[in-house]
């Protein structure tokens, strides 16, 4: 299966933020609230990952609500590709 690495997902995340004139900090511990990465931005990122891999990534909302940092986003999407 065509799968994106954590670093590749990080690049896509930076693009999503760049389109809104925001910057992705290098620190995985950075808080999403502080950098202005919201739940629909997460949707956008997930759909970009889908576009790259050609695989649908469906998921429930509870997992989404636990995401607070940049690292959480990357972990979630890496994990989701394995499901």
């Amino acid at each position: 299966m065509n799968e994106l690495s954590r670093a590749q997902i990080r690049d896509l995340m930076a693009q999503v933020l760049k389109n809104q004139d925001k910057e992705l900090p290098a620190d995985d511990a950075a808080q999403l609230r502080e950098i202005g990465f919201r739940s629909l931005d997460f949707s956008e990122l997930a759909l970009r990952v889908e576009d790259e891999t050609g695989e649908e990534l469906n998921f429930d909302a509870p997992g989404l609500r636990r995401i607070a940092t940049v690292g959480d986003v990357l972990d979630f999407l890496v994990e989701l590709q394995h499901q």
């Binding site: 469906n58 998921f59 909302a61």
Partner: peptide, 12 residues
Amino acid sequence: QDSLHAHTAADD
């Protein structure tokens, strides 16, 4: 249900 529409599988 507890999933955003865009990320809900069509079968679901």
